[in-house]
């Protein structure tokens, strides 16, 4: 099996957002979904565009312009969809993230989310 394109952490989030939104994936919705995924952090719409452009250049997503809609001043939306290579890269990145998570669970013991919170006060002593 050929190696998938390596992706960064933010690219991982954007790919996940595009996959989750399916047919409704365009700038505004992707940005909202990304902010939801990285809560409490925020990100600008421009950073999402730049990442989408990069992912498109890597051949991981493809885009097309939809028909103009009146609430956008008669302008089109640029819709995005994952390419098979994009899904492959997303799956590989998610498996790697899961592996890291499992390892941290083993180190911290139990659930990594609560363990992370429990661990902080210990370091303050």
């Amino acid at each position: 099996m050929p190696n998938s394109e390596s992706i960064g952490q933010f690219e991982h989030v954007v790919l996940a957002a595009v996959l989750a939104l399916d047919d409704d994936a365009y700038g505004v919705t992707i940005h909202a979904k990304v902010e939801e995924l990285i809560t409490p952090k925020t990100v600008s719409l421009g950073a999402v565009y730049a990442t989408l452009d990069r992912l498109e250049d890597k051949g991981l997503v493809r885009s097309w312009l939809s028909n103009p809609t009146p609430e956008r001043g008669g302008r089109s939306k640029r819709h995005y969809r994952l390419e098979p290579t994009g899904e492959h890269a997303l799956r590989d990145a998610t498996i790697a993230a899961k592996r890291i998570c499992d390892d941290l669970e083993r180190i911290w013991g139990g659930d990594v989310w609560t363990a992370g919170r429990r661990w902080k006060p210990v370091r303050q002593h």
Partner: peptide, 13 residues
């Protein structure tokens, strides 16, 4: 090249 969808998105927001 990206004016159409970027301005559209800004309008939507």
């Amino acid at each position: 090249p990206c004016r159409e969808h970027v301005i559209g998105d800004l309008w939507e927001r």
